[in-house]
Write a protein that binds this DNA or RNA. Sequence first.
RNA 1: GGGCGUUUAGCUCAGUUGGUUAGAGCAUCUGCCUUACAAGCAGAGGGUCUGCGGUUCGAGUCCGUAAACGCCCACCA
Length: 842
Amino acid sequence: MLDKKYNSKEVEENAYETWKEKGYFASGKNDGLPFCIVIPPPNVTGKLHLGHAWDTTIQDIMIRYKRMQGFDALWVPGMDHAGIATQAKVDKKLREEGIDPRSMKREEWLKVAWDWKEEYAENIHKQWAKLGLSLDYNKERFTLDEGLSKAVRTVFVKLYEEGLIYRGERMINWDPMAKTALSNEEVIYKDVEGAFYHIKYPFVDEEGYLDIATTRPETMFGDTAVAVNPDDERYKKYIGKKVLLPIVNREIPVIGDVHADPEKGSGCVKITPCHDPNDYEVGLRHNLEKIVVINPDGTMNENALSYQGLDRFEAREKIVQELKEKGYLLKVEKIIHSVGHSERTDVMVEPYLSKQWFVKMRPLADKVLENQKNKETKVKFLPARYEKIMNHWMEITYDWCISRQLWWGHQIPAWYKEDQIYVGMTAPEGEGWVQDEDVLDTWFSSALWPFSTLGWPDETEDYKKYYPTNVLVTGYDIIPFWVNRMTFQGLHFTHKRPFEYCYIHGLIRDKEGRKMSKSLGNGVDPMDVIEKYGADALRYYLATSTAPGTDLRYDEEKVKSTWNFINKIWNASRFVLMNIEDLEKEDSSKLTDADKWILTRYNKTVKDVTKYMDKYEFQNVGSILYKFIWEDFCDQYIEMAKFSLENVSTKSTLKKVLVGILKMLHPFMPFVTEKIYSQIKGTTDALIISPYPKVEKKEIFIDEEEHINEVMTFVRLFRNKKAELNLGKEFKIEIKSEADYTLISKLLKWEGKMIREEISLPYVVVEYHNYKIYLYNEHTETKEDAEKKQKEIETLEKSILKREQLLKNENFVSKAPQDLVSQERKKLQEEKEKLNHLKDEV
RNA sequence: GGGCGUUUAGCUCAGUUGGUUAGAGCAUCUGCCUUACAAGCAGAGGGUCUGCGGUUCGAGUCCGUAAACGCCCACCA
């Protein structure tokens, strides 16, 4: 028998291991249609946060639902090696141990990293278990697995052969802390305080100077021209002349280029081809010299003369100081401007000219745009508006820088020998070939995740059976990094969308609506929540609190009230279990009206829940189940069932509905439902693999439902009246109609309070349909407050008038659905009757 | 500069082909320890659905417009 109070720890203990050991999470166990989700692989060295809990709960709900419906459900687990993030952490750990990671041999370092990975992967496994995720561990993958690495090499080689991967010197985003190139997506623009430094660039052959405004004076050592707009009347006469670069004392030409915007700054701009993407383009157009002045670590190099070795920001201050002292500084204007920062290390990104590998995006993106026009084969976003985000990205995308100057990742399958390049699955034959030192962007391997995890490039059984996957679940912040790239790689290499649906959720925020972040210290560890309220409460809360695609403000109070809900279910189950202990064989031959009512309500609930489950609208499922369980089942039905607990049909109904409730709740709160289910006599299977409820038409009883609804309404009216009059326990009633009051009298505890003879005390009337009683005690002072009654009459008259007008409206009568019209007529009739009664009594 | 989202009860949010008197949790008020549950039960109060205009028999829902807040993308000497 269950304890009196729900205890999440007791319920959740060992349950996961049992499911796992019995193989319930494993796919390929039935003949059902395949249903497959691949988990968005968490960073292996990360700790799961609430966002992961949310993301994975949604997926687990989908998987458990489909599994119960008889699908061959496969949820592929796995983790991402997370190049920069992991390397940074491993390096940090090594430094703390007094070891300079870069002094190590690559192989030695990798050994440390792999050990670290194993340790952290174990943590994530534990967290997944706590959350109750029904992942098929037989299929678990890691992005650096041999299989996935093969997929990565295959893709690289093929794209190279197709001319869609190339190596070249380009202006890229450089992270001086991680000392690696980044893709544009990995650069976060932030508003920071800065300044326009106006500097004098004197003419060489005449008096005067140009006023050059720059936010980055430290790059002036790399200036190889000054540009003015060729249409700028103020300056076009200077085109072709020379100016002297201050401090450096190098002569540089004044050129005419449209890049110079007369509206901005002074209208003259210094051109530093190696340290600004636009200047780089200008440099190409005018065939300017390229001078690099910053080292990969963000310090100034030998071209910065006396500033060599200084950090770029320190150098800036000192240069400004020197310019000022030498009279070159015209003015300093403070400004707020946005500057790119590395997504991982948060340092200012340096635009940098360097030789990297790129994916040529245009043809790949066009393929996606083309495919999204086809309703049959497109990726369908939920909510649909997120498709625009992907399409927009596909429209404006530019080449993807995929090489990273790291050790942790897939080493680029390119080998060099003098001027030759060889790209292939394995090292080329012959002596002297050296493999590219760099690794690929983490997202390069993640982009293949939906098919590489299923065995691609081999035509494995899994790949044939489960690909394309059914739905991908992720946050909108990951669309550019991941969803987009999976989509184009999937289309290009498998000729199919990688997933039919892309379910997008929002971000978790704190109660004030701020993003949860380490710096704010407002993060919430899902494991702490589970410790306090249990995984079931957390899961239900996360899954049912918002509509798809919107952010969620985490509110512990709501988790608490979910706990209350579970406790309610727990206690209702206790009641049912206590009363069905002696139920040998289910029997529905003697159903009471109340039984029929709850069966009807139950079947309607199954229908609605199924509808919304199929649409993945879990917040709707949540509210339907909450209402059905708490209000219909607990507050109404159980109270009525108490009057016929000896009836085998009532017992059967209690059991049937409870089991149905447990099944529908199971995807949301797997632990507590499985636990309760296991306590029901005669259940041999596990809930997790039991069949999902289906609507049974023969259990829908319209008349009885109507009857009980009337009883319930009358009971409520009676209670209202009694509360209003503050009658307490002592009251009497006199029945004034011939209806059947058996159930009503029990619900309202009328025993010993009914009389038949006429009484003379003041009374009030409670009336609904065929039910009409007089209610009174010795303190019932007046018949009714006349004023109050008058008000009631007035509102009723207003309502009748409104309804009459509505029904007089020919357009409404002809255009509105007929059942609505007849409902309105019925209601009008009722209101009129009520009005007459009221008037009679006055 | 381009695009998107949000605006509904004191707070946090549902409300998905337009259709009864707009819902829930928490909070508030009243009365109950009625043996499944007081973390509960029975009731109550609380809304010009951001403003304005339009379409419609009918608008929280569709269209236009304005505002506030937030997000994404682009640019950024």
